[in-house]
Amino acid sequence: MYTVELTKQNGAPAVEDAAKNAAFEKRVAADEFIEPKDWMPSAYRKTLIRQISQHAHSEIVGMLPEGNWLTRAPTLRRKSILLAKIQDEAGHGLYLYAAAETLGASRDEMTEALHSGAAKYSSIFNYPTLTWADIGAIGWLVDGAAILNQVPLQRTSYGPYARAMVRICKEESFHQRQGYESMMVLANGTPEQKRMAQDALNRFWWPALMMFGPPDDNSPNSERSMRWRVKRDTNDELRQKFVDVTVPQAEALGLTIPDPDLKWNAERGAYDYGAIDWEEFYAVVRGEGPVGKDRIKARVDAWEQNAWVREAAMAHEAKRTARKAA
């Protein structure tokens, strides 16, 4: 669904073949694509593995808050839509894991890193989905924020990542539109439904702004990531864009953005918005969100309790090949 580089890097990049490095930098600066077997600096490889796998983990963990409402969707139409969206999230996770594997990361390593807590995922999924309106709000706000982040990544320098982003972006637009439509129904419904919609906006607005990651002055690897085209806009630029496009959408719903400092700045041609609680962000990234531990437990349980299926499938295949050889 969305990624931001959450873990700090340690150590300076190793000194590698200077000529190869210069050729690499030149290709990237010329907006050329780097493909799996091409030479690349090890820091580039490491940065990408971390970024792509965090992105993949976010898609996979992102299925959990939505799955929470699958059996309680209000109509068959909404249930079919939600099921299709959750399948898409699984697909997005798998496109991205496959892209990371082309860099030499193994799927098992990545799964293990998520389960042990060594790898991070988007902080937004550590908030609970308390009412049905949250599902609409997630589609509208969370997928909306994801789109803003992902569209520029279609031109990222690593070919398999860029191609995965093209597929993802095509599908993401459905996610946002179904969410907004669901919010429209609630916002134009009974007073109780409208109250639910407002409450969901109240709880998801700030976490959605945090999805763009730390402010630019506290985002140490931004400059290098921009040079390598693994990031194409700064966190604050994307956050501002999100506020500017989303405020009129909220107004059209007749809902109020929960920010008393939000106001149009004619001089900048953009909305000014209030201060973000970054302490909360870092705590949630560390897994201290309201449901952080439940999320990882759900993943670990699914992985461990279904290990027998993987083992049985492999045993069946071993038997089949043995029979064929005989």
């Binding site: 798998l94 496959a98 594997e101 191609r163 995965a164 499938a313 069946h316 295949e317 089949r320």
Partner: peptide, 8 residues
């Protein structure tokens, strides 16, 4: 278009 993991 990409890759998948599968037993058979």
């Amino acid at each position: 278009v990409g890759s998948v993991h599968a037993a058979d």
